[in-house]
Amino acid sequence: MDVMTKPARRTAPASRLVRAELRWIFRRPRTLAVLGLLALIPVIMGIALTVADPTAASSGGPPGNDGGNLLPAAAASVLVLPIAALTMTLQMLLPLAAAMSGADALAGETSTGTLRGWLLAPVGRAKLLLVKALGVATFTLAAAAVIAATGILTALVINGDGTLSTLSGTTLSIPDAVGRVALAVGWVTLQLWAVGAIALAISAFTEHPMVVLASVLGGVIVFTVLGSLDALSWLHPFLLTEVWWSLVDVLRDPVPAADLIDGGLKAACYLAIGLSLAYARLVSKDG
């Protein structure tokens, strides 16, 4: 008797929900378009730097202010080009992609009415947030990985497997170099998770995806402006955008870990703030 009346399953397993969410995300044309455009950036950088006169590039501009120094070296190296592309896109385009993904996850679904199904379904709100957060996390990882991969491929096509030299003048072995690019991808993804978590929080409060995009992008710009004002130096340790330059440290040898760890911890703090706010809003949201 007991065996016969096994109760119908009341909740879907999380893994199935995540798979459904991922399929949903990666079948959207705009997701693929964004990933495709991000993949083009290292290719464009590589070609532009090869075509441009390298001597003119190295003498132009004041040293050490805008990452310009990284660029002349970038085309020459399988190691430097992916990192340079990640550093550049991390300033604006990757946060934009993370914000887009966060905006679609909640606000987008609210605006098309599909979130209602989630809220009424027998799925806990914590599980819902987990699924959405994992969706954003996977998308940002894919974005960073795509940039690194096309960066490596572009440099290989332009130079062959030539030079793997660090900023400190040492030459790395291939596994070591790949490890560093992987480290950079992981670190960038963590930073993007922080941005994505804030985007999710805003996303939970609104039903207009554009509001999420605008506020995250505006936030990044405001943080960058605040970071460039010397008079506000007391505020700088709190700004997430300030730590993004330390990505260059993976090109030094040995890697000075202090700034990278510090940046990772700060991202974790933003992640905690964003996710807890998003959860608080989702829990009290009416179906």
């Binding site: 340790p237 709190f238 911890l265 933003y270 992640l271 703030i273 807890s276 608080a280 829990v283």
Partner: peptide, 26 residues
Amino acid sequence: NTKRKAATVAVAGTAAGALGLGLLAM
């Protein structure tokens, strides 16, 4: 009950994050 739960999570999470940032900035 859910309202209070939401408020608790929001305050706790934000406080933890802000505290962490403060400690890192010291």
